[in-house]
Nucleic acid binder design. Structure first.
Length: 438
RNA sequence: UCCGGGUUGGGGUAGUGGUUAUCCUUCAGCCUUGUGGAGGCUGAGACGCGGGUUCGAUUCUCGCACCCGGACCCA
C-alpha cells in the first residue's frame, strides 16, 4: 500500500456528488451574472510567484525544475496567471472583463481544519472597472452563491472594510507627529486583532510606528459604526480617508440595490492579511463562529495587474474554496446527504442479456441513470447490489417474465412489484415507475 | 517550523510483555438456480513504519510517517 500524500484528498463517489453540487451551484450563479469560464495551466514559472510575493514564497510552493531546465511550480493561486492573460490580450478584450474559473491549486502549507495542500477554488473577478458597482457586483455574486446553496441570512455574514480607510487613518497619524508608520505592518496587526491579547495587539501597533496613545485612538476608530462613518472623515481631515469612505459608502449603497446589503456588516478591523488589496475588502464568516476562520475573502486590487507587468487594470474579485465552503454548508445543515442514487437497475435472470440491454438502452436514451449486471451475479445478489446503489426502480427481465411476454417492475422503496407487457415498457413514458402500472 | 491528542481487518472497536488478538459492521459465497433492506452458516480481512530494551514487543521506549485540533502563515 502506498501512502496518500499529506494534505491531498481522495474523493469517493458518495462525497463526489456533494462536491459537484457545490461547484455546480457556485458556477451557475457566476454564469448568471455573465462571468465567463476560463481555464489555465496547472504549471507556471516559479519566477512569477517570486516576483509577486518574494523569495520566501518558494517554501510554500510545489516547485521543481522540469526536463527542459525551467523552474516551474504548481499554481498556488490564479491571479498572476490571469494577469498574464489580461496583459497578453490587452486592448483586444472588451471591458469589463468578467471571468471565473474552478480549479485545483497547490500550496505547501500546514494542514488544518478547512485547509489542505491541494484544494479547489472558484476565482471570480472583474477587471477593468474601478466603479463601486463592480465591488458591489462581486459582493452580490458571492452572497447569491451562498443563498443558492441554501444558506440563510443568519448563517453567514460578510465583514466589509476598505483598505484606504485603514491606510488613510494611519497616514493621518503619521502626519500628526511626523513619525514613520509602517502601514502594511499596522494593517497586518489589525487583521489579527481578534486573535491577539489586547496589550500584545497594542504593542504590535506601536512596533509598527504608532505611539501608545495613537494606538489606542486608532483602535477606537476601528469600532466606528456605519452610521458614524462621516465622523471619521472629520476626524482624519485627510483626503485619502474621505475618498475611501465615500467609496465604501457607494459600494454599500450599490450592494443595497443589488439586494445583498443585509449580508454585509461594516467591520473596519477586517483587513485581509495581504498587502496588495487597495480598496474594498471583505471576508465571509460563519455567523455562529463554529467555523473559526474566514470561509473566503476578496476585495479590490487595482495595482496588481500593473505590478505583474500587465497594463494598469483595476480589479476586484473573490475566491471561495471547497474546504471551507463545505464546512460552512455542513454547519448550516445544507450539505447534501452522501449516498448514491440510481434511476433504474435492469436485472437479468437467465439468458436475457440482449433483451435487458435493449431495455437499458431505451431508458438511457431518456436521460436516466441505468445499471445492469456486469458481474454475472444471481438474482438475489443483483437485488442486493441494486439496493446498494440506491436504485429506485428495478426492471426484472427474466426468462419467466419473457415467457408471458412481460417485465416485472419493482419499486425498491416499498418492495412492491407488478408485471407489464413488454411493448408497454417504457412505451411513451419518460420515466416509468411502479406507480404507472400498479 | 512549533504545541497538544491520536494510529489495532475496508469502517467502528476490545485487549494483552508470551492469546488461535475481541466484538459489531463490511465484503464474497452459501442456506435460496426468481426476490434486496430479516435470520443462519462458511470464508476474506488488522496490531502505521523503522530502531532500541527484552529470551520474547501489538503492548515499554525513541525516531519517523500519517490523521485530528491549534500557533505561525494564509497569495
Amino acid at each position: 500500500m502506498y501512502d496518500r500524500i499529506k494534505g491531498f484528498r481522495d474523493t469517493y463517489p458518495e462525497s463526489m456528488g456533494a462536491r459537484r453540487w457545490l461547484f455546480d451551484t457556485v458556477e451557475s450563479t457566476a454564469r448568471g451574472y455573465g462571468f465567463r469560464e476560463i481555464d489555465t495551466p496547472a504549471l507556471e514559472r516559479t519566477e512569477m510567484y517570486v516576483d509577486k510575493s518574494g523569495e520566501e514564497i518558494v517554501e510554500e510552493l510545489y516547485s521543481f525544475e522540469d526536463q527542459g531546465g525551467r523552474d516551474v511550480a504548481l499554481t498556488p493561486e490564479l491571479t498572476p496567471t490571469v494577469a498574464r492573460m489580461v496583459a497578453e490580450r490587452g486592448q483586444e478584450l472588451s471591458k469589463p472583463i468578467k471571468w471565473f474559473s474552478t480549479r485545483k491549486f497547490w500550496r505547501y502549507e500546514q494542514v488544518q481544519q478547512g485547509r489542505f495542500r491541494e484544494f479547489s477554488q472558484t476565482n471570480v473577478d472583474i477587471f477593468g472597472s474601478a466603479e463601486p458597482d463592480a465591488d458591489a457586483e462581486i459582493l452580490a455574486v458571492a452572497a447569491e452563491m451562498l443563498t443558492e446553496l441554501g444558506l440563510q441570512p443568519d448563517d453567514f455574514e460578510f465583514r466589509v472594510s476598505h483598505r484606504d480607510v485603514l491606510g488613510g487613518l494611519l497616514e493621518s497619524f503619521d502626519d500628526e507627529d511626523a513619525t514613520d508608520v509602517d502601514t502594511e505592518a499596522a494593517i497586518r496587526t489589525v487583521d489579527k486583532r481578534a486573535k491577539l491579547e489586547r496589550p500584545q495587539y497594542l504593542d504590535q501597533l506601536v512596533a509598527a510606528g504608532l505611539s501608545a496613545d495613537q494606538a489606542e485612538r486608532f483602535d477606537d476608530l476601528l469600532d466606528t459604526p456605519e452610521s458614524e462613518l462621516d465622523e471619521l472623515v472629520a476626524f482624519a481631515d485627510n483626503d485619502r480617508v474621505s475618498k475611501a469612505i465615500e467609496n465604501l459608502q457607494a459600494v454599500l449603497a450599490a450592494a443595497d440595490d443589488l439586494g445583498v446589503r443585509e449580508y454585509c456588516t461594516l467591520s473596519l478591523s477586517t483587513a485581509r492579511g495581504l498587502d496588495y488589496y487597495t480598496g474594498t475588502v471583505f471576508e465571509c464568516f460563519d455567523a455562529t463562529g463554529d467555523v473559526s476562520r474566514a470561509v473566503f475573502g476578496g476585495g479590490r486590487y487595482d495595482d496588481l495587474i500593473g505590478d505583474l507587468g500587465g497594463p494598469d487594470t483595476p480589479a476586484v474579485g473573490f475566491a471561495p474554496g471547497d474546504a471551507t465552503l463545505s464546512l460552512l454548508c455542513q454547519r448550516a445543515g445544507v450539505w447534501p446527504e452522501e449516498s448514491l442514487t440510481t434511476d433504474y437497475y435492469v436485472l437479468t435472470a437467465g439468458d436475457t442479456r440482449s433483451q435487458a440491454a435493449a431495455v437499458a438502452r431505451e431508458l438511457r436514451s431518456r436521460g436516466h441513470v441505468v445499471e445492469s449486471d456486469v458481474a454475472d451475479r444471481g438474482f438475489g445478489a443483483q437485488l442486493d447490489y441494486a439496493d446498494s446503489i440506491g436504485a429506485e426502480t428495478v426492471v426484472i427481465v427474466g426468462e419467466q417474465d419473457l415467457e408471458s411476454n412481460e417485465y416485472t417492475i419493482k419499486d425498491m422503496d416499498s418492495g412492491d412489484q407488478t408485471t407489464v407487457p413488454v411493448d408497454e415498457f417504457p412505451g411513451d413514458l419518460e420515466r416509468p415507475t411502479f406507480a404507472d402500472f400498479a
